[in-house]
């Protein structure tokens, strides 16, 4: 029986934790024994990519933002202010488009990692602030916790300085004034009780990033054809299950965030224009920096944005 160690960031009862468990249940059979390590109990999320590449863990459900330092094309998922039509299920569709998987898969393989597919979305991820602002131009001079990729230079374009910290530090940093705001997910906002220290939020997502299911490439190559088939099948089922159930989860979180946060910072017309120009800017920058493959990814993304 092939033992597969599957690590992830979330507690078992979290939706993304449940997704990982669903995948394990799908795969457990005569051929596989999947051991799940929730809450970073084997390997930390930040180190998930490297640890998978080196076989310290066999499979990891990795936040896409943690891969951009190793696989530059993953920046496609950090292009700021995704269009309003880009819901979580739409994002999963885009990320799992065969053309996208093909291009990204090749890049992952050069880092000794097999990209199995994208099983989750970060959900609504936006800027939460200690003090409300009336326009995004007021980001100027503020210190904001960044999440990597293009969201960092975008904040800098808006005149903010970017601070780097783990999810766990956000509360204290907001409280101490170490930062004026944080980019974080609705789920972190609710779970960490950030509302008391960051009552204002942007009306719309600044970024939406998928979670990649990664496997150590050597381990993958050691599987025979039927075993690989079984893994693919389990991934397909998991994606379908996740897409089906994520909307309810998103809605639940959105309700919590809505009730806890005090101020919603809505965009005026010139804000909208600025945002669109920034989206375009980074779309182009991405396409021109990372070659033909990047151009192709942008084409596919534009298709899904319609």
């Amino acid at each position: 029986k092939e033992v597969l160690r599957l690590g992830h960031y979330f507690p078992t009862e979290d939706f993304r934790g449940k997704t990982a468990q669903y995948f394990a249940d799908q795969l457990n059979s005569d051929a596989f024994d999947v051991k799940v390590y929730p809450s970073e109990s084997l390997v930390k999320g930040r180190d998930g990519f490297m640890a998978t590449a080196r076989g310290t863990v066999d499979i990891y459900s990795l936040f896409g933002g943690y891969a951009v330092g190793s696989v530059d094309l993953m920046r496609i998922f950090t292009i700021p202010f995704p269009s309003k039509s880009m819901t979580d299920s739409k994002l999963l569709e885009f990320a799992n488009d065969p053309r996208v998987l093909d291009i990204l898969g090749k890049r992952f393989e050069t880092s000794q990692v097999k990209l199995l597919g994208f099983v989750n979305s970060s959900g609504e991820t936006t800027v939460f602030l200690a003090d409300p602002i009336s326009s995004i131009k007021e980001f100027s001079g503020k210190r904001i916790r960044g999440v990597g990729g293009y969201t960092d230079p975008v904040l800098q374009d808006l005149g903010a300085s970017v601070v780097f910290m783990s999810a766990a530090e956000q509360f204290l940093q907001l409280q101490t004034g170490g930062v004026d705001g944080v980019i974080t997910t609705n789920s972190s906002y609710a779970n960490l009780g950030l509302a008391t220290v960051a009552p204002a939020r942007l009306e719309r997502s600044i970024v939406r990033t998928p979670y990649a299911l990664l496997m150590n490439l050597r381990k993958w190559n050691r599987l025979d054809e039927s075993e690989q088939q079984a893994v693919r099948e389990a991934v397909r089922n998991t994606i379908a299950w996740s897409a089906e159930n994520f909307d309810a989860e998103s809605e639940r979180l959105a309700k919590i965030v809505e009730s806890q946060s005090k101020t919603v910072i809505s965009f005026k017309e010139d804000d909208e224009q600025l945002i669109n120009s920034l989206t375009d800017k980074y779309m182009q920058e991405f396409a021109s920096t990372y070659g033909d493959d990047a151009g192709l990814l942008v084409e596919v993304l534009t298709e899904y944005n319609k």
């Binding site: 390997v43 930390k44 930040r46 180190d47 640890a51 080196r54 076989g55 310290t56 783990s166 530090e169």
Partner: peptide, 19 residues
């Protein structure tokens, strides 16, 4: 034997933290 390289990931992950 090959699993022993995991040591480096764990050490690096542990002692490269701001806290």
């Amino acid at each position: 034997i090959e699993a022993s390289v995991a040591v480096s990931d764990i050490i690096w992950g542990t002692v490269s933290e701001f806290v």
